[in-house]
């Protein structure tokens, strides 16, 4: 990697100060698993002058619950989130999502803050400098999007605008279903951003000098059946082709709360609100789940090579609502309470 100045932040405030000082020429490093791709492949027009290490900030890796709100420090590692008894018990979809990321070695260092803030995986955007790159594009602000006419099998089927790269974060999908918020610190103090509002087609909602400090996950009303399903070509390592988080609360045989979040289909995480509304007040069965799958496609406008994602969205929503695993044999009976589907295959 090209040289850079390496700074160890002792506090979040110090990190923010340093961001201010470098005026956009510094990058934060938490787990590093996304950052080093940028530094090694040099796919952006500018190379950072400084790297600000956040791991030197003590005490930012907590997982704690108080007054019904789960608080996750931005430096909490994905391996710890996936293994936490608290999260597995109460926020199973999040544990599944954290476990679904990358590989064991990367989950041992990758943080949830980094997972939420990682850059997109568009193959044009990330094309390495040393192979006759980089490729100019809309996201970099220096050219048109080549994916629109090129290979867009992994791109957005909804809400793309100028840029059609999708949000690659798995944890964001689960967190959006939980209506989680990001606690963000900047020179002007703290603010909160809902995960579902965090991403837009050309980037995220962070200002230049802001840092994600914490994730707040409000309590769910009732006991929800939780599901996180991630469709990939192979396991593990892959980023999602489509992912779905579904939280379904059933009382007296009817659904009283449904939250369905879609990942890897749009620049941000999509909440399938039409499907959610449809399910409320209905019995959860194969027909209603399938109908929710159809409704989840509201507003979808696939590109030439990614219409196949629509089928996968429909299927994952249906299976997620029914609490079935990703590789399900049948779709017959929802099969009673399923804590959070997607068991490992043998």
């Amino acid at each position: 990697m090209k040289p850079f100045l390496h700074l160890n932040a002792q506090t979040v405030a110090q990190a923010v100060k340093s961001l201010v000082k470098f005026e956009g020429r510094a990058r934060l490093n938490a787990g590093g698993t996304d950052l080093f791709g940028l530094l090694k492949d040099e796919f952006l027009p500018e190379y950072p002058e400084a790297i600000i290490n956040l791991k030197s900030v003590a005490g930012l890796n907590y997982l704690k619950q108080s007054k019904g709100i789960l608080r996750i420090g931005a430096l909490a590692k994905l391996c710890d989130i996936a293994e936490s008894p608290l999260i597995k018990e109460r926020y199973g979809a999040l544990a599944e999502a954290a476990h679904a990321v990358a590989s064991p070695q990367l989950r041992n260092v990758a943080t949830i803050g980094g997972n939420l803030c990682q850059d997109v995986r568009c193959c044009y955007y990330r094309y390495p400098r040393h192979l006759g790159g980089p490729i100019s594009c809309a996201r970099k602000g220096n050219g048109p999007c080549l994916a629109v006419r090129g290979d867009n099998r992994n791109h957005a089927i909804m809400e793309g605008r100028k840029c059609f790269a999708v949000c690659p974060s798995d944890t964001a999908v689960a967190l959006a279903a939980f209506d989680a918020r990001l606690v963000v610190v900047g020179p002007a103090g703290e603010r909160r951003i809902a995960v579902r509002d965090f991403y837009h087609p050309l980037g995220n909602a962070l200002e230049r000098d802001e840092i994600v400090k914490e994730i707040e996950v409000p309590a769910l009303a009732g006991r929800a059946r939780q599901s996180f399903l991630k469709f990939t070509l192979r396991r593990p390592i892959d980023f999602a082709v489509v992912s779905v988080a579904a939280l379904i609360v059933v009382e007296n045989g009817v659904c009283c709360e449904a939250r369905i979040a879609l990942g890897a289909v749009a620049p941000g995480v999509i909440r399938a609100t039409a499907a959610e509304e449809y399910l409320k007040g209905r019995a959860i069965d194969v027909e209603s789940a399938a109908q929710a799958g159809e409704l989840a496609l509201a507003g979808a406008r696939p590109l030439p090579k990614n219409a196949y994602k629509l089928e996968i969205v429909k299927t994952l929503v249906k299976r997620g609502v029914l609490g079935l695993p990703l590789e399900t044999a049948g779709e017959g009976d929802a099969g009673g309470p399923c804590p959070h589907g997607n068991p490992e295959r043998g």
Partner: peptide
């Protein structure tokens, strides 16, 4: 944790 207190920036190690 507001960012305004004690305005030191992060430092490199030797």
């Amino acid at each position: 944790m507001a960012a305004t207190n004690k305005g030191k920036t992060a430092k490199p190690a030797k």
